[in-house]
């Protein structure tokens, strides 16, 4: 039961593919087969770039049981540069560094491992954008 459930999400979880309404151009993530704006059923896949900014965040101390070995972790609402808002974990950052407005980018990471079926699930997380100085 659990395997197909995670398998079919691959394109969304690994590549951040959403949908675009072919009539009014509204972008959605997760994908929607009925446009939330104009109710059109004409849609196509849309590749999101995976950059955005934090509009809210929280550090979780009491997680659901599938995530209890991941503590501590932060989750955020991230407004992607294309418009849709996404819920995801923030990684590679200390809790006290997070702030509303912080720019972040998508990375692929392990989301959970110790669920009932022992399936290791990967997916998107977001990390602060770091500007590396070139030598």
């Amino acid at each position: 039961m659990d395997v197909p459930r995670h398998w079919r999400e691959q394109v969304r979880r690994y590549r951040l593919v959403g949908s675009k309404c072919k009539d009014c151009e509204k972008l959605s993530f997760p994908y929607r087969t009925v446009c939330p704006k104009c109710r059109s059923r004409n849609y196509e896949d849309y590749q999101l770039i995976g950059r955005g900014k934090i509009i809210s965040f929280t550090n979780i101390n009491s997680p659901p049981k599938e995530h209890k070995y991941n503590l501590p972790f932060a989750v955020a609402l991230i407004e992607l540069m294309e418009g849709p808002v996404i819920t995801a974990q923030i990684t590679d950052a200390r809790a006290e560094e997070l702030e509303i407005g912080m720019e972040v980018e998508m990375v692929t990471r392990k989301i959970m491992e110790y669920n009932d079926d022992g399936i290791i699930c990967y997916g998107y997380k977001f990390r602060p954008i770091v500007e590396y100085a070139h030598p």
């Binding site: 929280t58 997680p63 995530h67 989750v75 996404i86």
Partner: peptide, 11 residues
């Protein structure tokens, strides 16, 4: 798209 990422209701 929410709970999968470890977001509890409190969160």
């Amino acid at each position: 798209y929410e709970a999968f990422h470890g977001v509890s209701f409190v969160a």
